[in-house]
């Protein structure tokens, strides 16, 4: 009996292992074949070139060199980083007191509905939320119409729209819910008595905040930064709709290159975005994986 049973053993061990990988298969095909492979192709494309609308397999750094040789492109790159930093900072800056208020001053039974209310705009269409600002800021928008109707100006003021500050305003509007939600979940868990205790023991308020509050809510802050900063880096619609020529971001450059069939140059610019994301994740990798940050 034993001699029969023995060869079964290795097969049985192999069986469950491959069986437990099997459910992955569709996901591996979908995300491997249609996400990782195309990203790899983009990397290769960024080192090839387009001649007469055909992608030619010449290895070159020309796409990158071209991008950095055009002042307007480099300026757009820096402006994109600037817009992302400012919009992220304002979103978090607005979200922090809001989360503080919600977690400390709002009666417990009202917290959940108020939190859901913050997320409701997120469930409505992204495009429509950008569009809704046109009705306020646009040339025929509420502000201009109101000023004309009230007789303050006779011509529409372009001031409210088609520049960088309009882009930042709308981005803050779009990403505030993310920031509020992630900050709320970490602030809610914070024990405010500890802050008071630190101050009772002689710490200045600023020092207490820096040494007690910030380390404990840091995971929430980092998550919020990542979830706001990264999508903003790749924004296309908002600068396209409310930004005009003054609010162009790097995502618009990517689309322009691809629409002009400049595939290899577009690939290089897309990889610049990916590079910035990678850098951000590397900078924050410690805060993302440090369990002691949760107060453990």
């Amino acid at each position: 009996m034993n001699t029969v049973a023995e060869p079964e053993a290795p097969r049985r061990r192999l069986g469950p292992a491959s069986a437990s990988y099997a459910p992955f298969l569709p996901a591996v095909v979908l995300l491997g074949g249609f996400f990782l492979v195309p990203l790899g192709i983009i990397v290769i494309y960024s080192f090839w070139e387009v001649i007469d609308y055909n992608v030619v397999h010449h290895w070159t750094l020309g796409n990158y060199r071209y991008f950095f040789s055009v002042t307007a492109y480099v300026k757009t790159m820096w402006a994109t980083l600037w817009v992302s930093v400012v919009a992220t900072a304002i979103s978090l800056g607005l979200a922090f007191p809001f989360a503080y208020w919600l977690s400390r001053y709002v009666p417990r039974r009202l917290r959940a509905p108020l939190l859901i209310l913050v997320v409701v705009p997120f469930w409505t269409s992204y495009l429509l939320r950008v569009y809704s600002w046109l009705t306020i800021l646009g040339e025929k928008g509420l502000l201009n119409r109101f000023l004309q109707w009230a007789g303050i100006t006779h011509h529409p003021i372009g001031l409210f729209l088609y520049d960088r500050s309009a882009v930042i305003l709308v981005l803050v509007y779009l990403y505030f819910p993310f920031a509020a939600l992630t900050l709320y979940s970490s602030i809610e868990r914070f024990d405010w008595d500890r802050l008071r205790a630190a101050m009772d023991l002689g710490a200045t308020p600023l020092k207490a905040i820096r040494r007690i509050l910030v380390p404990q809510v840091r995971p929430g802050i980092v998550t919020a930064i990542i979830f706001v900063f990264i999508p903003i880096l790749g924004e296309y619609l908002t600068p396209q709709i409310v930004g005009g020529t003054g609010g162009v971001m790097i995502g618009n450059l990517v689309v322009n290159f691809f629409q002009a069939a400049e595939y290899t140059r577009g690939a290089a610019v897309s990889l610049l975005i990916a590079l910035f994301i990678l850098l951000l994740l590397i900078v924050f990798r410690r805060s993302l994986s440090a369990p002691e940050a949760y107060g453990g």
Binding site: F24, A27, L31, G32, F34, F35, L36, V37, P38, L39, I41, I42, Y45, V55, I226, I230, P231, L233, G234, E235, Y236, G251, V254, V255, F258, Y263, G266, A267, S270, I273, A274, I277, L281
Partner: peptide
Amino acid sequence: GIRVAFILPIMIPGLLIGVSLLVLFTGS
């Protein structure tokens, strides 16, 4: 590793998914 690979598409802007698939579908 598998978990990170599966979640990556959420971290990457949709724009990059769009253009890379465009290249795969039409170019390759």
